[in-house]
């Protein structure tokens, strides 16, 4: 009896021993901040004035935020921005990645060059593009005027500012999709392409019926990562538009950061962060479930 129990309990101890550092670290790094965030969201207080104490606010921070039309505008803007830039990044990334999977002279050099924007800090990219998009002396309007078009006030008007931000984000992050797409495309066995060629399949058929479906799980992961990352975009907007004109390019993350560290309305910022967290988690869960189903099918 004893001899049968011993190995089992030793095994359990080992499992606990191996898992506990990670679990403790996760509890400290993830669970504790999230619980604190939720806890703070029910209070009115300012981290800048801790001596004034915390007043119980119940759901009033949530009520205030959800009844504020300004916050809804920021959600709408964030949604438009995410849709625009993720769509452009996926289309461009898959297209360029498909071309780059084929061997040609200078491919590695081109591949490395394409990766460069991704290595820049978003703040640096924001300032860089801010000057390039300057309506009077920026290189973008110089090129626009070369083609005989009128100069555009890219960052001074709400519509062009959204497009400008989406283009800059696409410039920065399409390389990420290219990287993953190329890796996924290269992982498809050559024999499948050879069989398709023998059967007389067209290039479009091969791309849509073989390449895309077989690399779908990897592309889907890329999509999830880009969706989450775009949804919490903040630093690019700080440098590129400062959230303006008006508040037309303020994302929800921008509003969270401003409320937390500029206004120091800690309770309200926590409530907004909780709302944002719920949305991102909900979105991620749907996509991850879809990914799991996709994996099961494959």
């Amino acid at each position: 009896m004893d001899t049968a129990l011993k190995p089992r309990s030793t095994g359990r101890l080992m499992i606990v021993g191996f898992l506990s550092p990670t679990v403790l670290l996760l509890l400290f790094m993830v669970a504790y901040p999230i619980f604190s965030l939720v806890h703070y969201s029910f209070y009115n207080f300012s981290a800048l004035n801790p001596d004034k104490g915390m007043d119980w606010a119940g759901l009033s921070n949530y009520e205030y935020l959800l009844s504020d039309s300004g916050i809804w505008k920021r959600f709408v803007f964030t949604g438009k921005f995410v849709f625009l830039c993720v769509t452009m990044q996926m289309i461009l990334g898959i297209f360029v990645g498909y071309r780059l999977q084929k061997t040609f002279r200078g491919r590695d050099l081109l591949f490395t060059a394409l990766m460069l924007p991704m290595m820049l800090s978003p703040v640096v990219a924001g300032f860089l593009w801010r000057y390039m998009l300057n309506s009077e002396w920026g290189v973008v309007n110089f090129l626009v005027s070369l083609f005989g078009f009128a100069k555009v006030d890219w960052l001074g008007q709400a519509g062009p500012a959204l497009w400008a931000a989406a283009v800059v984000d696409t410039w920065m992050w399409t390389p990420f999709i290219i990287l993953l797409a190329t890796a996924a495309f290269r992982g498809i066995p050559e024999t499948i392409y050879e069989a398709a060629e023998v059967d007389g399949a067209s290039a479009a058929y091969v791309f849509f019926r073989i390449t895309l479906p077989m690399s779908a799980p990897v592309l889907f992961i890329a999509l999830i990562l880009r969706l989450i990352d775009s949804f919490k975009q903040y630093d690019l907007f700080v440098a590129l538009t400062g959230g303006g004109p008006g508040s037309s390019t303020e994302t929800v993350s921008f509003a969270v950061a401003k409320t937390a560290f500029s206004y120091f309305y800690t309770g309200e910022a926590s409530a907004l962060a909780v709302i944002l967290l719920c949305i991102i988690m909900g979105l991620a869960m749907i996509l991850v479930r879809h990914l799991s189903n996709m994996g099961a099918r494959h």
Partner: peptide, 20 residues
Amino acid sequence: YPVLLDILQEEVSNAISGSK
């Protein structure tokens, strides 16, 4: 001040861009 400033910044910026 930071909140009052940010509100006025936003609204003056709206007037400059012509949205209000």
